[in-house]
Amino acid sequence: MIYLTKDDIKKVFSMREALDADKEALSWYSKGEANIPLRTNIDIPEYNGQSLYMPGYVGGENPALGMKIVSVYPDNIKHDLPSVPATMVVLDPKTGIVKAILDGTYLTQLRTGAFQGLATELLSNEDAKTALLIGTGGQGMAQLEAMLTVRNLEKVYVFDIDKSRAKDFCDQARNNFKNKFNTIFESVDNVNDVSEMVDIITTVTTSRKATFDGSKIKKGVHINGVGAYTPEMCEIPSSALINADEIYFDTMDGVLAEAGDIIQPMNKNLLKNDNINGELGQLINGNISGRKSEDDITIFKTVGTAALDVIVADRIVKRALVENSVVEI
């Protein structure tokens, strides 16, 4: 059995490869070739903790099996430990034997960033030059890298409710990507000062209210809603959804059960099932159409699926074995 840290993964697996792995996972998912049970949550009240177990199997030509374990222990911070540790367990689908353990925190960042990047690649205008990233938490840098990977962006505006954190994020982005992209990174104090001029908007927060003014977006914009994953959270404004020409989900069942961005406007009859085009995997498989014109407003909403974790993790392990970049345990 092998163990792969964040640095191990970064050495052998690029964002582009993660994009391709996510595309493969979504394709098989939408073909009905994935078995993704409901997440199991275990409360640990005496330690103010919760442990979450997310197993999954994706079939097809190159099957993958695994389980991600995510724990939420807010008090860990007092002991200088991560409050949301995550671990990915990869099994051999042919034998059921555990073959690898990966850093689940970075895996989640990588596959989620790549997921948004895939939607941006498939749905945004190819000549998109400007983007807005809302939220600079743990997911922020991977979300930014994914956008930069799929579009030749000249400028990315960055917003966070903590202004100093947005500025620090831009400094870090300049350092991270100085030898890879020629993009300008600029923090903004008011998200709506730039929301009406950008070609791509990616919001990745846990906000319970819309993170930008949907009446200010321009024609042709593509919007990614990445952060909100409970019925109470809501990043995408209803006004944007109402005016959208095409709306896509990662998984229909997941979004309709968990995403407040969609559940809330549906409960108010502002949005109906008929307004939803389908799953991104269906678009990949050619079952539904994508953007129809440069002026279309397109929206992608994701809450995540274990199908991404198991496929991306499996492909990382295979690549690490080829590169001989492994640590045996």
Rank of each mutant, 00 (worst) to 15 (best):
M88R: 07
V89R: 06
V89Y: 14
L91W: 14
L91D: 12
D92Q: 06
D92V: 03
D92P: 03
P93Q: 11
P93I: 06
K94H: 13
T95E: 12
G96M: 12
G96Y: 11
I97R: 14
I97Y: 15
V98S: 15
K99A: 13
I101P: 14
I101A: 12
L102I: 14
T105L: 15
T108G: 15
L110G: 08
R111C: 04
R111S: 05
R111I: 02
G113Q: 00
A114C: 00
Q116V: 08
L118R: 01
L118I: 06
A119P: 00
A119Q: 05
T120F: 01
L123M: 02
L123S: 03
E126F: 13
D127L: 12
A128P: 08
K129C: 07
K129I: 09
K129P: 10
T130W: 04
T130C: 15
A131G: 09
A131H: 09
L132M: 09
L132S: 08
I134E: 04
G135H: 03
T136C: 10
G138C: 01
G138M: 06
Q139T: 03
Q139L: 11
M141W: 01
M141C: 00
A142H: 02
E145P: 02
M147E: 01
T149G: 01
T149A: 05
T149I: 05
T149Q: 06
N152M: 09
L153H: 09
K155M: 05
K155G: 04
V156S: 06
Y157E: 04
Y157V: 11
I161K: 14
R165V: 10
A166V: 07
D168Y: 11
D168S: 13
F169Y: 15
C170R: 05
D171A: 14
Q172K: 13
A173T: 07
A173S: 14
A173Y: 12
R174P: 02
N175Q: 15
N176I: 13
F177K: 13
F177V: 05
F177P: 15
F177G: 12
N179K: 10
N179P: 02
K180N: 10
N182G: 08
N182A: 01
N182Q: 11
I184V: 14
V188N: 00
N190G: 00
N192L: 00
N192R: 02
D193R: 00
D193Q: 00
D193S: 04
D193P: 03
E196P: 01
M197Q: 12
M197H: 12
V198Y: 07
